Simulated assay, not measured.
Amino acid sequence: MAASTSRSPCRRRPPPWGRVGAGGTTRWNNSHKPAGTNRSTSFVVTPSASRKITPNEMTSKQVMTVAANKAFVILDGTLLHIDRIAADRPYYSGKHKRHGMNVQVIADAFGRLLWVSPALPGAVHDIKAARTHGIIEALTQAGIRTWADRGYQGARGTIRVPYQGRWSTLPAGKRAVNSSHAKIRAVGEQANATLKSWRLLRKLRCSTVRITDIVKAVLVLRLATAA
């Protein structure tokens, strides 16, 4: 008996919000595109307006403008896990003891995601990654107070980090400062959790050259739905 050529009723249809295709690009169903996005260009959506921007402009202009209206922002680095073997040393993070890609995250005082950097190999330290993307310089020039962890020691400018030293050896005043600092930074973990709530980013099995595009697509979707 010849096989039927009719389309199976059980075949899955593409979701209305689109899907991530080859190269990490997002293919939209035209009738359900989120506001502020199109096929080829990312948009940052803010309560006031949206405009076309590039990833580089996103750091120095759009995000700095948004962040300047906040009481302060929180800068943190997170590792997106990837499937690599032990020989891929550039992607191995000594801090997390596994392979991954380093992305820098900026959150507001309520832990809401504002911006995510392009991805770098996991072996890159947070402060080096922040300097590579020009984040520290941009935040300092804009005069934006920023809380960060010990991974950003030496950043200076408007970047505030906890005092170095063991808890038992620190004076009471510095202990109080570090305790308050930790409580503020803990809110920023919500932005990392928001980013990793996307199953696609929990463990990436694609080429590492595609990860930045995937992260940017997720950021656009998140900002569009939060607006």
Score class of each variant (00 low, 15 high):
Gly94Lys: 08
Leu139Trp: 02
Ala148Trp: 04
Ala71Trp: 05
Ala226Pro: 00
Ala130Glu: 01
Cys206Trp: 08
Lys196Tyr: 01
Ile85Met: 02
Lys70His: 13
Ala142Arg: 13
Val220Asp: 08
Leu221Arg: 11
Ala182Cys: 08
Gly94Asp: 03
Ala182Pro: 01
Thr140Cys: 06
Gly188Phe: 00
Ser4Trp: 08
Ala119Gly: 10
Ala226Gly: 01
Ile211Lys: 10
Asp108Phe: 02
Ala35Pro: 01
Ala119Asn: 09
Lys174Ala: 09
Ser117His: 03
Ser93Met: 12
Leu139Lys: 09
Val45Asn: 07
Ser31Gln: 15
Asn38Glu: 10
Val209Leu: 06
Ala142Gln: 12
Thr41Gly: 04
Asn69Ala: 14
Ser8Tyr: 12
Phe110Val: 02
Ala172Arg: 15
Ala155Tyr: 13
Glu189Cys: 04
Ser42Tyr: 11
Asp76Met: 05
Thr225His: 10
Ala68Tyr: 08
Phe110Glu: 14
Asn69Tyr: 00
Trp147Phe: 15
Arg89Tyr: 10
Arg84Asp: 09
Gly21Cys: 10
Val73Gln: 08
Trp147His: 06
Ala109Thr: 08
Glu137Ala: 15
Ala142Pro: 13
Asp76Leu: 00
Gly188Lys: 03
Lys128Phe: 04
His96Lys: 14
Asp83Pro: 04
Ala227Glu: 11
Cys206Phe: 07
Met101Leu: 14
Arg12Tyr: 06
Ser179Lys: 07
Ala87Tyr: 00
Pro34Ser: 12
Pro90Phe: 12
Gly143Ser: 13
Ser60Leu: 10
Lys128Asn: 13
Ala182Trp: 03
Asn102Tyr: 05
Pro55Gly: 07
